[in-house]
Amino acid sequence: MLGRSANAIFWMFRYLERAENLARLLDTGFRMALTRDHLTAEEEWRSVIETAGMRDGYQEQNATYAGIQVWNYILRDRDNPNSIRSLIGAVRSNARSARNTITTEVWEAVNESYLQLNDLLSRPVTQAGLADAISTVKRESTLVRGAMDGSMLRNDIYNFARIGSFIERADNTARILDVKYYVLLPSLSYVGSSLDNVQWETILRSLGAERAYRWLNAGQLDARGIADFLVLDGRFPRSLRFCYAKIRSNLHSLALQYGEEVHSHEVMRNADLKLQDKDIDVVIEMGLHEFLSDFIVTNNRIAAAIEADYRFSD
């Protein structure tokens, strides 16, 4: 396949993943804000912007953190390159530019999602419309993934799509955990102590993990357990461990198809082995923030190595 197409597909799935994670983040913010007084609600929305990594852009336009401003900025602001509207536009544009590498089913799922969301987001989203907007984003993303699963050949194209999804997902999980955990835990002495349960839940909810976590831990909420689950539990599909197992498996398929391993495979293998060796108590002791910052840097390095090895650009 063309390097340019590999690039388009890889980023298409990164953007799609990012849009879905933003929707989940908004969902969490919204639920939290509903149960708070006015001031704490603003605090919650500020944290959403922070977690989404949009502070600078947001502050250029807004002085306060009113909910309606925040969700409209994240959902539909055209000047925000990471707004869901911008991301969905980029997903479609990438799909169009690599149209002959994806099946009609995938293309139609992307195009329909785009048309529906673009229409939905062409007007400001009110409080009454927010839940619908959020669930539409999640549904459309699921639709595209499903079309992908059911119709695509398991070849290089599929593998680049999957690698893009999991690189982005790992990055997002690490960022959400980092920001939320950091906000929640100003000092290490809080680890292990019982905090506001609702606050803890925001981390899990932002990653769609609250049900899975509860199911595995019989309702026990503590910082260590949550960090362990989101970083190291290979059963949870948004954990760092899970994402890396998937990327390795997709890179392995690529190596089988192409008949050779290249540099990025080694970079990935090393990163994964390092992650597998981790013990959550040691990670927390050494500093979760430091660990996550390192992780994000390494994750970017893996993506860059793949992009270079497979000639995504000239």
Binding site: L2, G3, R311, D314
Partner: peptide
């Protein structure tokens, strides 16, 4: 090398 070539993921 005297041919019009396209950049693929493998060269």
């Amino acid at each position: 090398d005297g041919r019009v070539q396209m950049r693929t993921t493998r060269g």
